[in-house]
């Protein structure tokens, strides 16, 4: 029924309907990936170096200067308390990235454990495990986060717990599916007839494959975790104000909007969007490569 799906990979000489030969797809080109990776490096360096190079006392406030728009002295401007947003932004990015990385790692580790347990033990554990996965997926993650944060109050640990507790499900599915496919997928079956032992299949095929997929999963989770942290903090349920995460800066920025200080919102918002886009851009297209 299909037309030849294995047509030779020659230049496109097979006729296609006019106008739909190469539709623009929303995925980054290799050049875009390079730009995204470069942007990510710049952002991480900014978060790491600026707080070191510009040592300021974060708690020192100076209401006399008040909010000043971006200038040469303060490229991102200053906030209502006269604090430099370039430095505050770097601190905020640092806190947000740490929280996101820890949360995403926790989610991937938890997902691996659950997925592997479901696949390897099977039976009732597998059925119930998958039911729990469905249940967690059915509840809006943010709602779960709000409930947990409401009870435990904001701290870095709470944010990490919230992210890990709500995002382990995709990884669990992934690991379970890959392990179960050991028996059915054609290339594992080929490995059987080629005389590889289970251990060799795991070592040469399944483990590297799974590792690559987990790396992508982790990479995709980090921007999502940044989003979660900033959202919860923005709502007042996340990190306490003395830890200036991006979400806290955004919250202050929104309050400052009414006084016309748009840059207090623009600086952290720009950082948040930039870090999300760079992370996503680095991984664009990776998912397809590895699900082969």
């Amino acid at each position: 029924m299909r037309s030849d799906p294995y047509a030779p990979a020659r230049p496109a000489i097979r006729p296609r309907p006019v106008g739909v030969i190469t539709a623009a797809r929303p995925r980054a080109l290799p050049a875009g990936r390079v730009v995204a990776a470069a942007g990510l490096v710049v952002l991480v360096l900014y978060a790491l170096l600026v707080p070191v190079l510009v040592p300021v006392d974060l708690d020192r406030v100076d209401y006399a200067t008040g909010p000043t728009p971006p200038s040469l002295a303060h490229p991102f401007g200053t906030d209502l308390a006269g604090r430099d947003l370039l430095v505050r932004g770097a601190h905020g990015l640092r806190v947000s990235l740490v929280a996101a990385l820890a949360g995403a790692t926790g989610a991937v580790v938890l997902g691996c454990l659950v997925g592997a347990a479901c696949a390897l033990v099977g039976g009732r554990l597998d059925r119930w495990g998958m039911r729990v996965v469905d249940g967690v997926n059915a509840v809006p993650h943010l709602l779960l986060g709000i409930v947990v944060a409401a009870a435990l109050r904001g701290s870095l640990l709470t944010i990490v717990l919230v992210v890990a507790a709500t995002h382990w499900t995709q990884t669990a599915r992934l690991v379970r599916a890959e392990l179960l496919a050991l028996g059915t997928r054609d290339f594992y079956r080929a490995a059987v007839s080629l005389g590889l032992t289970r251990r060799q299949v795991l070592r040469h095929h399944a483990a590297p494959r799974l590792a690559a997929q987990l790396a992508v999963a982790l990479g995709l989770l980090v921007p999502h975790a940044v989003w979660h942290e900033s959202t919860l903090t923005f709502l007042g349920l996340g990190l306490p104000p003395h830890q200036p995460s991006l979400g806290a800066l955004l919250d202050l920025g929104q309050q400052a909007l009414l006084s016309g200080a748009w840059w207090t919102l623009a600086a952290p918002a720009g950082l948040l969007v930039a870090v999300t886009l760079c992370l996503a851009g680095c991984l664009a297209g990776r998912t397809e490569d590895h699900h082969g």
Binding site: Y6, R185, F187, R189, H204, H205, P208, D289, H290
Partner: peptide, 14 residues
């Protein structure tokens, strides 16, 4: 030896 109908599925894509 067993060879599958779908060569793309029968090899490790990596």
């Amino acid at each position: 030896a067993w060879v599958s109908q779908h060569p793309h599925l029968a090899v490790d894509p990596r």
